[in-house]
Structure formats: structure tokens, C-alpha cells
């Protein structure tokens, strides 16, 4: 089976610093993968490198096609990206903002098609934003804005979705519904890569996790195989209570080492 995303020997230098060193991994279609690691480990850099936002070395391909061979708009129909910075500049309506996710599917000056409208409505429903859709995007709370921007990425309807700390700032209910949305997308055959700091969310919802530290992959595999006391101690420097329940793995950091 062709990988949805294949990364080989990815290296990124920012200034004099090697931010990513020889990173290689594959994502399969239908996988929801968590990207874990402490602050500064290189998670955001990794996502930006895949999106072509920074200079990098190494080979990357989506469904067997080299990323370098894709035009920006072709890339935008394969990959959607949610930056960590939740930037919104003008007081546009929530619906208009989410509609921007349809940009790569439009040409010229044509208005939204039925497909565009349906994609936007589905994204609004998935992120529980029906009540907010006519509001100005600048008047929302931090968590609401985060959900609007996630909905924008969902509306892009790409086979691959890369999100940078999508759960940060969301209340517990919306964190769970976000994870459930990603899980649902994966069951439909789409591929989701999300950087996360919420270890329990990763433990309960991700099919697989990739743990990175200092720009290299430390461990990769099922949550129970990666989120071990030894790995958490070396990578995060924390002790944690790890328990397995019916929902999956629960990881509660309890102290520093």
C-alpha cells in the first residue's frame, strides 16, 4: 500500500541550529497519528517543513508523488495545515473565514459551489459552530477561535490534515469532540497528524504516536508502547501515573524527576 505521507531523512537547519535531524516516518491512509515531544523538540518545524513553509533537506511524498513536484495549489488540495498561531486579521464572519478553506478548490472569480457550501456546513457542524457562524471572528473567545480555525482546515477536505497543537486552549468537552472528529476522519480513510501536549488525549484517541526530542524520533508506535515511564522520564523529565481503561491509555504527569 502506498503511504499517505512518506518522509525520508528530513533535515532542517534554522540559523546555526539543527532543528530536525534525519527524521523518517510514514503515515498510512486512515491513520490518526499524534506527534508528541517537549517544547522546542521540533514538532512545529516538522509540520512546517512538510507544508513547504521552511527550507529543508530530504525526500517527502504524498501518495507516492514527490511534494517538490506539486504546485502550491496541488499541494493545497492534498494537505491542509492548521498553524499553531491562531491568526485572524479582519472582523470577517465565522462562516466567511471557514469558507477560505475552499480556496484551493476554486478558480477565477466563481462563487461557492454546492460542494463548497456543503463542505463548509459540515465543518461548522463538526466543530459545533452553528450558533456562531454569523459572528465576527475577532469577537470570539480563544477556544472558539481555535475551533473556527480547525473548521477552516476541515473545510479544505484534503486527504491529509496536519494540525499544530489543535487541542490547546479547548475545554475538555471540545477537546474530546475534536479528537473524535479526527478519529472519524481517519475512519473515513483520511490521514491526520496532530502535534499534542495532552498525553491522555493521545493515549485514548491516536492510532499511533511519534515521540520526538531534540529534533530526532525517540520512539514510534502504539500509545501503550511509546508512552512508557522510561520514555516520559527521558523525553519530558516527568514521572507519570499510567493506567489502562476501557477508553485506552490514561497518562497523568505527577511530578518532575
Amino acid at each position: 500500500m502506498t503511504s499517505a505521507l512518506s518522509i525520508r531523512s528530513l533535515n532542517v537547519r534554522l540559523g546555526a541550529r539543527d532543528v530536525l535531524r534525519d527524521v523518517s516516518f510514514d503515515l498510512q491512509p486512515g491513520e490518526f497519528v499524534g506527534l508528541l515531544g517537549p517544547n522546542g523538540a521540533g514538532k512545529s518545524t516538522l509540520l512546517k517543513a512538510v507544508m513547504g513553509l521552511i527550507r529543508r533537506e530530504g525526500d517527502m511524498s504524498v501518495f507516492g508523488r514527490s511534494l517538490d513536484g506539486l504546485s502550491p495549489s496541488e499541494r493545497a488540495r492534498e494537505l491542509s495545515y492548521l498553524p499553531q498561531e491562531r491568526e485572524v486579521n479582519w472582523p470577517v464572519s465565522v462562516r466567511a473565514l471557514i469558507d477560505l478553506g475552499r480556496s484551493p478548490h476554486r478558480t477565477g472569480f466563481t462563487g461557492p459551489s454546492t460542494k463548497d457550501r456543503n463542505a463548509v456546513s459540515a465543518a461548522i457542524a463538526a466543530m459545533d459552530l452553528e450558533e456562531l457562524q454569523e459572528r465576527s471572528a475577532l469577537e470570539l473567545s480563544g477556544g472558539e477561535r481555535a475551533r473556527v480555525l480547525i473548521a477552516r482546515a476541515l473545510a479544505q477536505e484534503t486527504p491529509l490534515l496536519l494540525t499544530d497543537e489543535p487541542a490547546a486552549g479547548l475545554d475538555p468537552a471540545h477537546q474530546i469532540s475534536l479528537m473524535s472528529t479526527f478519529h472519524g476522519l481517519a475512519r473515513e480513510g483520511r490521514t491526520v497528524l496532530a502535534s499534542l501536549h495532552e498525553l491522555t488525549l493521545a493515549g485514548q484517541w491516536c492510532d499511533r504516536v511519534i515521540l520526538i526530542a531534540d529534533g530526532s524520533i525517540v520512539a514510534e508506535g502504539g500509545p501503550d508502547a511509546v508512552l512508557t515511564p522510561a520514555n516520559l522520564a527521558t523525553v519530558y523529565g516527568v514521572r507519570a501515573q499510567i493506567s489502562v481503561n476501557s477508553d485506552g491509555l490514561s497518562v497523568v504527569p505527577t511530578g518532575l524527576i
Binding site: 512546517k48 507544508m51 513547504g52 513553509l53 504546485s71 502550491p72 495549489s73 496541488e74 499541494r75 493545497a76 488540495r77 494537505l79 491542509s80 495545515y81 492548521l82 498553524p83 498561531e85 491568526e87 485572524v88 486579521n89 479582519w90 470577517v92 473565514l97 477560505l100 478553506g101 480556496s103 484551493p104 476554486r106 472569480f109 480555525l149 477552516r152 479544505q156
Partner: peptide, 21 residues
Amino acid sequence: VGRALDALTLGEAAAATLGFR
């Protein structure tokens, strides 16, 4: 540049990943 300016509402990184040069 109209549609690109719309996309820039989300910032430069998001606009670039929406396919705008």
C-alpha cells in the same frame, strides 16, 4: 490578488498552505 488577500486574513503561513504564492 483579491482571493489571496482573503486568504491572508488567516496569516501568511495559512495563506501559503491554501495554495497562494
